[in-house]
Simulated assay, not measured.
Amino acid sequence: MRRGPYASRLIGRAGLVAVPVAVLLTACGTPEPQMRPRPVATGGPVSTAVPAASPSPSSSVVSAADHPEACRNADCEVAVRPGDRLRLDRKTGLDAITIVALDRGELRLRFEAGAGAFHVEGMNTSVSQDCVNGRCRTEGGLTLALGRPGRIGDIRLRLASVAPDHAVLVLSPG
């Protein structure tokens, strides 16, 4: 079968149009769903459970209510609720940090320490010292919010996440 010059031009044009259309369809197509390889059956039961949609908190996050000593060295990541009290080693300069309130994404903290001056950074900071019969105590407070970290002496504090009923507080030395 012999083709005329007109048929050759049509086939050539169709080829020029078909290639870009195929590339465009491939590039703009919906992504294929991610498929995990299925385990090979080895004679025992095979689990095909799918993990929960939301990621679980980091395994290093503990609850302050269950582990009040988790931040002894002021290097921790802890889930806190109002009323929780974190006990710290005196070497950190602080005795304890208490969670006073969690409201509108802001966490209000109160800290206690022995005698001494503390440089405190954050929102709504306060520091006071009370001495009775030569024994002095320092108390203070500050507010943290996401993106608004704070500091008490040599301890940095920041919020990793905030939920309506709890927050994840990160303490680090330095």
Rank of each mutant, 00 (worst) to 15 (best):
3 R>Y: 10
5 P>A: 15
5 P>K: 14
7 A>Q: 11
8 S>Q: 11
9 R>H: 05
11 I>Y: 00
12 G>S: 09
12 G>Q: 07
14 A>S: 10
17 V>K: 01
18 A>T: 04
19 V>I: 12
23 V>E: 06
25 L>N: 03
26 T>S: 06
30 T>S: 10
31 P>Y: 07
31 P>Q: 13
38 R>G: 09
40 V>K: 08
42 T>W: 15
45 P>W: 04
46 V>G: 12
48 T>R: 15
53 A>F: 14
54 S>I: 15
55 P>K: 05
61 V>N: 04
62 V>N: 02
62 V>D: 01
64 A>I: 03
70 A>N: 00
73 N>H: 12
74 A>D: 01
78 V>T: 05
81 R>F: 00
83 G>D: 04
84 D>V: 02
86 L>I: 09
88 L>G: 00
88 L>K: 01
90 R>G: 07
90 R>D: 08
96 A>S: 12
98 T>K: 05
99 I>R: 00
103 D>K: 08
104 R>I: 15
105 G>W: 11
106 E>P: 01
118 F>M: 13
119 H>F: 15
119 H>P: 07
121 E>L: 15
125 T>L: 10
126 S>Y: 12
128 S>I: 09
128 S>A: 14
133 N>S: 12
133 N>Y: 06
138 T>A: 13
142 L>I: 06
145 A>Q: 03
151 R>M: 13
152 I>E: 01
153 G>V: 08
153 G>K: 02
154 D>P: 02
155 I>Q: 01
156 R>I: 05
156 R>W: 04
158 R>W: 10
159 L>G: 01
163 A>P: 01
166 H>D: 09
166 H>I: 04
168 V>D: 06
168 V>T: 12
170 V>Y: 01
171 L>A: 05
172 S>C: 02
172 S>H: 11
173 P>N: 11
174 G>C: 06
